[in-house]
C-alpha cells in the first residue's frame, strides 16, 4: 500500500506492506536511519519521533496509521544554523556516550519541554521514563533537558 507522510517538512511516500512499522518505513523505505530501534516491546524509546508535534514510539505505530501526518525525526531538528537547542544542550552537558539512545531521547525531551512550562528535575525524570539509556546514568540528560527548557 502507498503511505504518504510529511517528514521533516518534505512530502514523502513509499509503497509498503500493510504490516510495516513506522520505524521501518522511516529507516528502510525513506532511508532516515537516525531513528533507532532498541527493543521489541515498546520499552526503550530509542525509536521516538514526533507525530504531529507530539512524541510517539515509532515501533508501536504502523506506517499506515500515520498516513497524511507530519512526522519529525532527529534528522529534522538541526538547521543550517546549527544544532537545535536540545541537541546543543545534550552536547554541552555530556548527555550522551554511545549515542544510540540519543535520537529518541532528544525527540522525547523536545516534546516534554514543549508540553510542560516549568519542568523541574523530578518532572524530567518522570517525563523521560519511557526512554532508556544504558551509558549515562541519566544525570547529565536531566541537566541537559533542564538547561534547554530555560
Amino acid at each position: 500500500m502507498e503511505v504518504s507522510v510529511t517528514v521533516n517538512g518534505t512530502g514523502r511516500s513509499a509503497d509498503v506492506e500493510p504490516r510495516t512499522l513506522l520505524v521501518h518505513y522511516l529507516r528502510d523505505d525513506l532511508g532516515l536511519t537516525g531513528t533507532n530501534i532498541g527493543c521489541d516491546t515498546s520499552s526503550c524509546g530509542a525509536c521516538t519521533v514526533l507525530v504531529d508535534g507530539r512524541s510517539a514510539k515509532s515501533c508501536t505505530l504502523l506506517a499506515a496509521q500515520v498516513d497524511g501526518a507530519e512526522v519529525t525525526t532527529i534528522e529534522g531538528l538541526a538547521t543550517a544554523d546549527g544544532l537545535h537547542p536540545m541537541q546543543q544542550a545534550f552536547h554541552e552537558c555530556h548527555a550522551l556516550q554511545c549515542g544510540y539512545c540519543t535520537p529518541g531521547m532528544v525527540m522525547a525531551a523536545v516534546s516534554l519541554v514543549d508540553e510542560y512550562d516549568d519542568l523541574d528535575a523530578a518532572g524530567v525524570r518522570v517525563g523521560l521514563e519511557g526512554n532508556l539509556c544504558r551509558c549515562t546514568g541519566y544525570q547529565n540528560i536531566v541537566r541537559a533537558v533542564l538547561a534547554a527548557s530555560e
Binding site: 536511519t33 525525526t73 545534550f90 552536547h91
Partner: peptide, 16 residues
Amino acid sequence: RLRKEDPPLLTGESKF
C-alpha cells in the same frame, strides 16, 4: 572538553 563525537550522534548522521 566537549566531545567531537557528539554532533554526528546527535543528528542521526552516525552509522550503526
